[in-house]
């Protein structure tokens, strides 16, 4: 029985390794083949990046938000002090 196990192990590891080695080769080949697409995508992403860095809110909105939050905190503190 153990001999059967050894046979299966040889076959199994052989298949696993050859499958993944072939996969390695294919990944490398496809990376080469698709390199132009990847380059194009990356350059497009690079061009888009500065636009993303814009501040989302105008400064006066920030001030307004800060005022609202501090008012809420103040109100909460006042209420918990009363109880």
């Amino acid at each position: 029985m153990i001999i059967q196990g050894l046979k299966l192990t040889l076959l199994g590891m052989g298949v696993v390794f050859s499958f993944l080695v072939l996969l390695f080769v294919l990944i490398v080949v496809f990376a080469k083949l698709l390199a132009p697409f990847t380059k194009k995508e990356l350059s497009m992403a690079g061009a888009r990046k500065p636009a993303r860095n814009k501040p989302r809110q105008a400064p006066d909105q920030h001030l307004k938000l800060t005022a609202i939050i501090s008012a809420a905190i103040f109100a909460h503190r006042a209420r918990s002090g009363r109880h």
Binding site: I2, G5, L6, L8, T9, M13, L20, F24, I27, A31
Partner: peptide
Amino acid sequence: NPKTVLLGAAAQVGIFITLI
């Protein structure tokens, strides 16, 4: 980093040793 594929293969030794 396609080289790491081989590590995924090596770790399967555990399956077959356990089988034995």
